[in-house]
Design a protein around this nucleic acid. Structure first.
Lengths: 231, 231
DNA sequence: CGTGCGATTGAGTAAGTTCAATCGGGGTGG
DNA sequence: CCACCCCGATTGAACTTACTCAATCGCACG
């Protein structure tokens, strides 16, 4: 696999990059410089598999730009989307803390600039810079809360409810009523625990009811958010 | 609410207690003593709510003995079991790392001895004893993996598959083919994203097929594990 | 510019839920 | 310590929702 360095210019740009990562937000300039020395930036084309189930990747990856899909292959053999990661997020931590093989796949959905940090180096940073460990704890805890939310939603809510809740969540994070789905509807369906057919039907139903408008390029306009939240 | 101290005897016993908690496994004797000084032990009767959604409990709780159920109330208004915690596990960390209110409930399923540690103290320990932070990371990461497993299982696998997988998991952790369900079937059903009726039918079906035997007191005997894993 | 994959729509099916009634066991109170 | 009683467990029947299979459409990536 051929990979290119990001910002071949020099260390300075790399340091700027590292400083913008939430994980290292609390570090001082000198500490940042130390981290920057060990971090290796790479640019990955769209649809690149970063690691797969069964692999024992040896690095923590930090997304600078782009989008990464985390998914599993179920016993029945089909893909189940777990989570979508974007700029500032990290992945590959599960094989670091467990020391076992990954049970999921990570693939880029767009061209993505990603920094890698060897597990050994990360371990050292966790011990010397406690704020990094605390930040990781915060992130994992939040991920856990989100995943638990997905779980109870899939167990207890019907399809309409889940679709509406997803649209409202994207709308809230984008701060707009005219949102663009970050991923394909197929992936949205998987994330919500639905088939693409069902998602398509629910969205059509919402549009018929006058609550939303469907536009090309995965753009959806929300007209009646109260109606959606009442589902 | 009235609570009693565990081991009113003295500090020494408390230190022994703390030493057995995985979270503090790596600490030296002097460090353990320091932790033990801040930890407050309590004994809770069965069916005691430790904290609820909306509350902002200010302590990390560590289970010494007993069983705790973590659950949510879904939009539809029914209880969704998220996870069961036992001796050595901790809870209440979500309100520590986020600084927001809990979105779930914690209730004892048996009489439970639980140590509390103020969030402020925990924060101090995380900074001074990095191994504690790393241990918390490991735990949260594993919980995340388990929850993701539940998620993809609920999305992709049918009821038979989930029930069989659960029986095999309990059997594996108990190291026996004659297992006792740690929780009521009602709670098992919720954990698996099923109704109690469906779980009951699946178990009856398994028994009819000769794969298991159902006994009183939630005891189940597995006769044909290969058959169960093939579902 | 072509093509392959995602999206949509339709019809039929099957799985699990819901509602209801009964049974049984373990926990609580006397 | 025992008996009562409540709640969990079980079983039955009808239903409903989302899935499956299939065919067509259209956009977007290469």
């Amino acid at each position: 696999m051929h990979q290119h360095h990001v910002h071949p210019g020099g260390e300075r740009a790399l340091e700027q990059l590292v400083a913008r990562v939430p994980l290292f937000a609390q570090l001082s300039d000198s500490e940042l410089a130390e981290v920057a020395r060990r971090v290796v930036p790479h640019s990955h084309p769209r649809n690149t598999q970063l690691y797969g189930a069964g692999e024992r990747n040896a690095s923590l990856m930090i997304i600078h730009s782009g989008l990464v899909k985390i998914y599993r292959i179920t016993a029945a053999g089909h893909e189940q989307v777990i989570r979508i990661l974007g700029p500032g997020d990290f992945l590959g931590e599960s094989t670091f803390v467990d020391r076992s093989a990954a049970d999921h796949f990570a693939v880029t959905l767009e061209k993505s600039d990603i920094c890698s940090l060897q597990h050994d180096d990360l371990h050292a940073y966790l011990l010397s810079f406690p704020s990094v460990a605390v930040k990781m704890l915060e992130t994992l805890s939040r991920r856990l809360a989100v995943t638990e939310n997905q779980l109870s939603s899939m167990a207890g809510d019907d399809a309409d409810h889940r679709v509406a809740a997803y649209l409202l969540a994207v709308s809230a994070s984008d701060q707009t009523d005219r949102l663009r789905l970050p991923i394909t509807k197929k992936d949205v369906a998987s994330l919500l625990g639905l088939t693409p057919e069902t998602l398509s039907r629910k969205l059509a139903h919402f549009e018929d009811s006058g609550w939303i408008s469907l536009h090309p390029a995965r753009v959806i306009e929300l007209h009646d958010k109260p109606a959606l939240s009442l589902l």
